[in-house]
Amino acid sequence: MQLRQIAELLRARVLSSEHMLDTEVQNAFCCDMMSDVLAFASNQSVLLTGLLNPQVVRTAMMMDMHCIVFVNGKEPTPEIVSLADINDIVVMVTEASMFRAAGTLFDTGLLNTEEE
């Protein structure tokens, strides 16, 4: 699935790195604890989170993730958007809850782990 399709499915606004929207992704991970992302995410490309700080972007960078979806309409600060933009990470904001956003993406075949 392309990141562009994720934005459409979640009716999300794209705030950074629009040139990366054709990137293909197969996996996603949902979490507000960045410690858990570092511990349990493996080869996931999309991070769904309700946490708003620059460490979300740095954590995504460490994990080679391509996209961060902020749920519940949470608006990232310009600092967060800019950090993502210069590192080619797509940031989007959806009004959907974490549960609904994850369910929507799961329904379309996006998986949780590479083994599934």
Binding site: D32, M33, M34, S35, D36, L38, A39, L51, N53, Q55, V56, T59
Partner: peptide, 17 residues
């Protein structure tokens, strides 16, 4: 710190992992 997304007690175990 937990509100910032860290402090779950995974730091050192992760470094070892």
């Amino acid at each position: 710190i937990r509100n910032m997304g860290f402090g779950a007690g995974m730091g050192l175990p992760n470094m070892k992992r």
